[in-house]
Amino acid sequence: MSTFAEFLSMGGYAGYVWPAYGLVLLIIGGLIIQSTMDYRRQKQLAARLEEANEAAGRRRAPAKKVPS
């Protein structure tokens, strides 16, 4: 237990070492979560829009031959 407490105290520099590691965890972790969530959202949106477009395309199929 005392060695663990020693480890936590970081030779008296706990107030500098732990915030540094904590911040890296927070920022990199945040970046991973944000990137993953954005990717999933865009993937979902693209799939939904593609489906809607296909459905619209099927309905519009005869009219498609008219040049716009």
Partner: peptide
């Protein structure tokens, strides 16, 4: 010289 701060 730097003790445990070197871990940063």
């Amino acid at each position: 010289q730097q003790g445990d701060t070197v871990r940063i």
